[in-house]
């Protein structure tokens, strides 16, 4: 069961049992439990929750690391509404997320379905398709992408062989630069594909056999059996990939040389946040941006959970 499934279960279990007096053994167990949790609890307080609270406060201030923070109230948040570069970066990020994630998941599901049908050499093919997912987040692959989609890169050489000589300079052209990053994300469909493959294996073969007896064709079997039964896996992948895509950073940073260019066309929200915080040391504004990012990610996750009741099928 996935982390999301666990959260569902926790929520469903609902109200707590009333606490009773603990026996000696139970007290000992509880003490042991908290000892084992010491590193995690320390991390929660010092690395996660504490900094979160601090960052919420910093987001209400003007802070450049050198002078003490100066309280501004909601000024940083209001300033965002007039910050055209920021609004543009939100747009760029939305396009990236909502174009690349559906394409990536469609590719993952499509290939997984093809590979699933008792295909020989499955393990080998799975590894080949998974490899880009493993390397795709690295600086090296982003460097490669910059060259692949350069004016005289591999892609344009290939196009030239096909007789296309007026292709754009992809990464240097504001109309196409973001597209190359979308392609990069779609290229890493191997990770969700592996998850789909695991899910597809859970679909009972007997269902397909029964459907075949009833005369159901390939497509009918896919649409009426496979698809409904793997909706929880699709849901899981959608939630996860959307969360990941909103946080994409490395590829845009390297492909644009850290600028988010050309003309801010690859300026992801995270990249603008980095430039604001660690380029200009406007820590207050950067923190406010981080909270906006968190709210956006949380909102889309919540929407996903809410919408899941209309299309995700749980048989438990």
């Amino acid at each position: 069961m996935s982390a999301l499934g666990e959260l569902r279960t926790l929520r469903r279990q609902g109200a707590h049992k009333g606490s009773q007096a603990l026996s000696e053994a139970a007290r000992k167990e509880e003490r042991a439990a908290y000892l084992f949790l010491v590193p995690w609890l320390a991390g929660l307080v010092l690395i996660t929750a504490g900094p979160m609270v601090a960052s919420l406060y910093v987001s209400l201030t003007d802070y450049n690391l050198l002078q003490p923070p100066e309280f501004l109230g909601l000024a940083n948040y209001l300033q965002m509404l007039d910050d055209e570069r920021l609004l543009n970066s939100l747009g760029v990020t939305f396009v990236y997320v909502f174009v690349s994630v559906p394409l990536q998941l469609a590719a993952a599901l499509g290939i997984a379905v093809v590979l699933n049908r008792g295909m020989r050499g499955l393990a080998f093919y799975r590894s080949v398709y998974y490899l880009p997912s493993l390397l795709g987040g690295s600086v090296a692959v982003a460097v490669l992408w910059r060259r692949l989609f350069g004016a005289d890169g591999l892609v344009n050489q290939g196009l030239a062989l096909l007789g296309v000589h007026d292709a754009p300079a992809w990464v240097a052209d504001p109309d196409t630069a973001l597209g190359t990053l979308v392609v990069l994300n779609v290229w890493t469909f191997g990770a969700p594909m592996v998850i789909f493959l695991a899910g597809l294996r859970q679909v009972p073969v007997s269902l397909y056999e029964a459907a075949a007896v009833d005369g159901a064709g390939r497509w009918a079997r896919f649409a009426r059996i496979t698809l409904p039964l793997i909706t929880p896996i699709i849901f899981f992948n959608v939630v996860l990939q959307i969360i990941h895509a909103f946080q994409a950073f490395t590829q845009a940073f390297i492909v644009s040389g850290g600028t988010g260019g050309p003309s801010d066309s690859t300026m992801f929200f995270t990249l603008y946040l980095y430039q604001t915080g660690f380029g200009n040391f406007q820590m207050g504004y950067a923190s406010a941006m981080a909270w906006v990012l968190l709210v956006i990610v949380a909102a889309f996750t919540a929407i996903n959970f809410w919408a899941s009741r209309f299309w995700v099928f749980y048989d438990d």
């Binding site: 926790l10 139970a26 439990a33 929660l44 996660t48 900094p51 979160m52 990610v297």
Partner: peptide, 26 residues
């Protein structure tokens, strides 16, 4: 078994999805 297990477990699961940007400045 310990008191607060469900709450902490839930928090732990939520932190999996937390963007690092929210904590990076502090």
């Amino acid at each position: 078994r310990f008191r607060g297990r469900r709450v902490f477990f839930g928090i732990m699961l939520l932190t999996i999805m937390l963007p690092i940007h929210v904590v990076i400045v502090p």
